[in-house]
Amino acid sequence: MDLGLHALGIGTGSERAVIDAVSLAAEQAGFATLWAGEHVVMVDESTSSYPYSEDGTIAVPAVADWLDPLICLSFAAAATTSIGLATGVMLLPEHNPVLVAKQAASLDKLSGGRLTLGVGIGWSQEEFEALGVPFGRRGARTAEYVEAMRVVWRDDVASFHGDFVNFDNIRVNPKPLRNHHIPVVLGGNSESALRRAATWGDGWYGFNLADVEEVAQCASTVRRLCREAVRDPGDLRLAVALVDPQSADIGRLADIGIDELVLVASPPDDPDTARAWVADLARQWNPVLKSA
């Protein structure tokens, strides 16, 4: 099982020197992936319910710095040479898919083919309203956006016609390095989110799951939905972040078939201290992971 780190882009993790320090230290320590999430807009008071906490509120203060994940990960890429880079997650229906396809392929090329595009449909109606994007049908919009992006990545001259995206005979370069493909991982823990992952995703990123039992339930659902969609469940990469991960969870997660445990934490604001913080995490977790 791999170990990922979701620590960049927010608050102290949005500082350039800390991004450099955490990224390089994580690579040297053997972490598999650096993850960075997204919100374009935050509001002081929201009527929308955050789906990853019991009280429906997000822990990140509205006043916190929150970097664009592709820009944040481009700095992480420049500081490293081999560690994976993943958006966890980008709220895809809030963006133009042709532009995202170009931005993602650009980062993939500059990083040497290290990008995984984690996407979600979003939950904040206020955010969609501020961006002028309809909140309704965002699941269908996300699916079509991914389909259109894959056409852009695959074809030298691309055309696509759908309910939300239309273009004819366009060239969008560069192309992703890995056979004109960037893995698209779906975020979300609901059955509808798991169905998206199983039906057309390359993987699933379960975020803020309560415990291993919830992970097992979600993983079982993904595999059932894969079989219903006539897909091999083994073709999907499964990554999860737990509310309070413990070393005792590792063996059970491996038995469930989880490919990556993602640690979610905020780094210290001093680069030297941040490097030591990553090293402490590695000492705590890497020996356990290697023995799993």
Score class of each variant (00 low, 15 high):
residue 19 I to M: 13
residue 200 W to M: 00
residue 81 T to H: 07
residue 162 G to Q: 02
residue 169 N to G: 07
residue 3 L to V: 06
residue 81 T to D: 15
residue 124 S to V: 13
residue 75 F to Q: 15
residue 239 A to G: 11
residue 142 T to V: 13
residue 247 S to R: 09
residue 86 A to M: 12
residue 134 P to E: 01
residue 97 P to F: 09
residue 143 A to E: 14
residue 180 H to K: 14
residue 3 L to Q: 07
residue 124 S to T: 14
residue 53 S to D: 08
residue 71 I to A: 05
residue 74 S to H: 10
residue 248 A to Q: 04
residue 30 G to A: 12
residue 104 A to S: 09
residue 85 L to Y: 09
residue 177 L to E: 11
residue 17 A to R: 12
residue 183 P to H: 04
residue 96 N to F: 02
residue 284 Q to W: 12
residue 212 V to G: 03
residue 82 S to I: 08
residue 240 V to G: 07
residue 121 I to N: 12
residue 184 V to G: 02
residue 276 A to N: 06
residue 130 A to I: 10
residue 116 T to A: 14
residue 219 A to P: 10
residue 287 P to T: 08
residue 284 Q to M: 11
residue 61 P to V: 04
residue 252 R to Q: 12
residue 85 L to T: 04
residue 131 L to R: 10
residue 3 L to F: 02
residue 1 M to F: 03
residue 124 S to A: 15
residue 3 L to Y: 01
residue 269 D to L: 12
residue 193 A to G: 01
residue 132 G to A: 12
residue 187 G to F: 07
residue 146 V to I: 05
residue 112 G to N: 03
residue 171 R to H: 13
residue 278 V to Q: 10
residue 240 V to W: 00
residue 69 P to M: 11
residue 34 L to W: 09
residue 164 F to H: 12
residue 185 V to E: 06
residue 176 P to D: 01
residue 278 V to M: 09
residue 158 A to V: 07
residue 145 Y to W: 02
